[in-house]
Design a protein around this nucleic acid. Structure first.
Lengths: 242, 242
DNA sequence: CCAAACCTATAGGTAGTACTTAATCAAGCC
DNA sequence: GGCTTGATTAAGTACTACCTATAGGTTTGG
């Protein structure tokens, strides 16, 4: 993510947004504009622009005679990249990570199936290239290089699906994958079986085998779910039956 | 959707947003602030607030000395509810509808599986209620009442999944379902097999059978995909191999 | 006890002004 | 001739002051 600090309203946004997303202001909290003006030492114009953006993310609601009210988390636009990043950076990172992994598990197999039908030869080539890149960097503690290929691989599948909504999840997947790598930093090389799966997915897509592509991709994502289960076992879920 | 016209900047937004989303302004088009000021007969403040929101949706980019530039569609936040609605209302409604249906097909089965594990008794009860409501309204041209139950049913599954991102897709699913009903308005009653599927999904979730819940829900969504295929056969996809 | 009128806090909106950045282009240097 | 450097200047950015509109609260009257 490259966009930082462009414009004063961004400064306010990058400060208020994460705070709200982290739950620092419980739902119902009211923030008056002149208070924010003072707090951030900016003019009303700037505050209002920031508030408008937060409002479009459904993080807050601005009403006359009341102020800027923080909305309950259920209303937030949890698909907004900013909101995702802010939540990922804040208190409920585990829950957000689980949600995103569940999302991946749902989307990526479907995307792979579509990619098997619609991927262009160029896209197939790129996919294979990244899969082979993963293989060649999977040994000898080249985690950084491995990660690059891993991200590119998954992003390529999402793009090749031809579904622009799937494609837009590339950034999210990238963030999850890189977050995972950076989390248990001093880890050994990735599992060989997982690497092999990627190669086989690339093959299936190249051959136009949607069923195989979907099944193999699902194997990858259940692996990701299992991995998550180790880090945050059964947490973040509502209190249902077990 | 209830929020209309609140604030002058909304007026601008509700006019510019759909236009951009419909492709009226090709990527790279520049809109100057003072031009917009004049066009909408509002002050700079208002224009800038609207632009800030469009910017947060990645529909436009505001740069000094250049103006407000329309971004290519690949950059748009296609998960933003406003963007979804605007695209659904505009020229590429078919493509958007296909994307959303593919999204549903990926998410809803996964959500049903999670719901089978985590749904509370109250949620199971509500689910069954709506399934039965669908049954009882599936005959005698009560499409409106049927639609209400249908939407509530799918929304309930997404909510009961315990994944807040899935839950937020409830609005989208609602829009797709109601759009479908209102499209071929003078239609006969819904297919009995489809209705039965919903009842069986409710049962599977109540019994905590994640596998069955997922499989049955997938049957529903492939039905939706098939239905879409009739209305917009193979359109909106990139030119890959067949 | 309830309803209608009033009060006022707070966001909404406009206008004018000054600052800042960066695209452009021309002059000058290598 | 081509590249660097600097001036020009067009556009967004930001601040201020002032006014308006609305809606939550309070008072008042029935």
């Amino acid at each position: 993510m490259e966009n930082e600090g462009r414009g004063l309203h961004m400064k306010v946004l990058e400060s208020l947004g994460p705070a709200i997303a982290a739950g620092a202001y419980p739902a119902g909290t009211v923030l008056r504009t002149d208070e924010l003006e003072e707090r951030f030492e900016v003019s009303r114009t700037v505050v209002r622009e920031a508030v408008r953006v937060l409002e479009s993310m459904q993080l807050v609601e601005s009403r006359r005679r009341v102020g800027v009210t923080v909305r309950p988390a259920e209303r937030w636009n949890v698909f907004d990249p900013y909101v995702i990043r802010w939540r990922l950076a804040g208190a409920d990172r585990p829950r957000q990570l689980r949600s995103l992994t569940e999302l991946r598990s749902a989307i990526e197999p479907a995307a792979a199936a579509l990619a098997a039908r619609f991927a262009t030869p160029a896209q197939c080539a790129a996919l294979t290239e990244h899969a082979l890149g993963m293989v060649s960097t999977s040994r000898g503690r080249q985690l950084a290089a491995y990660l690059v290929h891993d991200i590119a691989f998954h992003r390529q599948i999402l793009t090749a699906s031809g579904n622009e909504m799937f494609a837009r999840l590339g950034d999210v997947v990238a963030e999850v994958l890189s977050g995972r790598t950076h989390h248990h930093v001093m880890f050994p090389d990735p599992d060989p079986p997982a690497v092999t799966l990627h190669v086989r997915v690339a093959e299936a897509i190249r051959e136009g085998d949607a069923v195989a592509a979907e099944r193999l991709t699902r194997e990858i994502t259940v692996g990701a779910m299992a991995e998550l289960e180790v880090l945050a076992p059964e947490s973040g879920q509502p209190a249902g039956r077990g």
